[in-house]
């Protein structure tokens, strides 16, 4: 098996772990971490394609996209954490109410 395939399989596993966590975890922080793990899986997938296409040097386009993607993912996660913190300050809740 070529090296890049290990990375791609890992990225798929990370993505599935993340998506499962978003839907199944209850605690806000766990949900947010799950989205970060999903993002990690996606970025790994991009970068592994860069490794595959490498003849003399790695394909730079996936790296450019991953950099942009990381910036976006960090901003989203920070915003989600800020919301979760504000909810905790106002109500003391750390998860969504069950009835909804």
């Amino acid at each position: 098996m070529e090296t890049y395939k290990i990375y791609i399989l890992t990225s798929a596993v990370l993505f599935v772990i993340g998506i499962g966590g978003v839907f199944m975890a209850r605690h806000f922080i766990k949900k947010i971490i799950a989205t970060v793990i999903m993002g990690g899986g996606v970025f790994l997938c991009f970068v592994s394609f860069a490794e595959r296409d490498a003849l003399t040097f790695a394909d730079p386009v996936p790296h450019a996209m991953v950099i942009t993607g990381i910036v976006v993912a960090v901003a989203s996660a920070a915003f989600a954490l800020a919301l979760a913190r504000r909810i905790y300050q106002l109500t003391g809740e750390q998860s969504f109410p069950i009835d909804k």
Binding site: M38, G39, C45, V61, A80, F96
Partner: peptide, 26 residues
């Protein structure tokens, strides 16, 4: 705030799934 966090988590999940598809296409 509750509704917004739920919206944000759904939006991140959606865009990450979209980006995964984009990675495969690329």
């Amino acid at each position: 705030l509750f509704a917004g966090l739920r919206y944000l988590l759904a939006a991140i999940t959606g865009s990450m799934a979209y980006l995964f598809g984009v990675a495969l296409i690329y």
